[in-house]
Amino acid sequence: MTVKENLKKVNEIIRMACEKSGRSQEDVSVIAVTKYVGIERVQEAISCGLFDLAENRKEGLLEKQQEIHDERVTWHLIGTLQTRKVKDVVDHIDYFHALDRLKLADEINKRKKSGKLKCFIEMNISGEESKHGIKENELDDFIDALSGYEHIQTVGLMTMAPNSDDSDLIRDVFRRLRNCRNRIRDRKLDYAPCNELSMGMSHDYRIAVEEGATFVRIGTALVGNELKGS
């Protein structure tokens, strides 16, 4: 399937999810996760108007950026980032979706040359040991601790739902993240406006949109996975 054909399906599912939940489709941004595809497929995505591109590893991000020089592109790093790699990417990304510890915030703030990096706090709502992120009862203290970081702006929260066929379980995780977001947003903090929700991937983005996602991270269902396992 072409990216154009996939995008048509994705947009229709998002449209129906927004209609069901009383939202505007314009409030949902689709991020094309390109970690399993090559440059030609990325260029195809851009030609379809997909300007939010994401990689989960530093190496993949920098490789793509060596070939993609389109100023319309917004770059997202969505995977766990080791502190020793911060210096290599912090000035090459627009959004970071996996801020989960103060040591990492320290390094970002230290290495960012100017301006603010838009960050999502990664939360482990499901409680799975295999997942990264802070717990719900740690969120307020974590937000408070970020107040002194001049180069970090907390724009929202991010989570990953369990890889499950249980839609009720997935929905509960997304709903709890939304409730956490609302609590921080209502504090009206300049350094942490927390208006956004980064949640939903290829298998569960419909539910995520119904529960308030403003960014959905879609790879396989949108651009494919031609490099997976290679």
Rank of each mutant, 00 (worst) to 15 (best):
E26C: 13
V28G: 10
S29L: 03
I31T: 11
I31A: 08
A32E: 01
A32F: 02
V33Q: 06
K35C: 05
Y36F: 14
G38H: 02
I39N: 07
I39T: 12
I39R: 11
E40Y: 04
Q43Y: 00
Q43C: 05
A45P: 05
C48S: 12
L50D: 06
L50Q: 08
L50T: 13
F51L: 12
L53K: 09
L53T: 06
A54I: 05
E55G: 08
N56I: 03
N56D: 05
N56A: 08
R57Y: 01
R57T: 08
K58E: 01
K58P: 04
G60P: 03
E63V: 13
E63S: 14
E63C: 06
E63W: 03
K64G: 10
K64F: 02
Q65H: 13
Q66A: 15
I68V: 13
I68S: 11
H69W: 04
H69D: 08
D70Y: 09
E71R: 15
V73S: 08
W75Q: 11
H76A: 07
T80R: 10
L81G: 01
Q82R: 08
R84E: 00
K85Q: 00
D88N: 15
D88F: 09
V89S: 02
V90E: 02
V90Y: 01
D91P: 14
H92L: 02
H92V: 02
H92Y: 05
I93N: 01
I93H: 03
I93L: 02
D94T: 09
Y95T: 11
Y95S: 13
Y95W: 12
Y95M: 12
H97M: 07
A98F: 00
A98I: 03
A98H: 03
L99F: 08
D100Q: 02
D100P: 05
D100K: 01
R101E: 01
R101K: 12
L102T: 10
D106L: 06
E107P: 10
I108H: 14
I108E: 11
R111L: 02
K113N: 07
K113E: 04
G115Y: 01
G115I: 10
K116N: 01
K116W: 00
K118F: 00
K118T: 01
K118W: 00
C119M: 06
C119S: 09
I121W: 02
E122W: 06
M123T: 09
M123V: 06
M123H: 09
N124K: 13
S126R: 09
G127D: 03
G127N: 10
E129C: 11
S130I: 08
K131W: 01
H132I: 04
I134E: 04
K135H: 05
E136R: 15
E136F: 06
N137R: 13
E138H: 08
D141W: 02
D141I: 09
D141E: 10
F142H: 11
F142D: 07
D144A: 15
D144P: 09
A145C: 10
L146E: 04
S147E: 05
S147R: 13
G148V: 03
Y149A: 09
Y149M: 06
E150C: 13
E150Q: 15
H151P: 04
Q153C: 12
T154H: 07
V155Y: 05
V155W: 02
G156C: 10
G156I: 07
G156M: 07
L157Y: 07
M158P: 09
M158H: 12
M158T: 14
A161G: 05
A161S: 06
N163P: 05
N163S: 14
D165K: 15
D166E: 11
S167K: 15
S167D: 10
I170D: 09
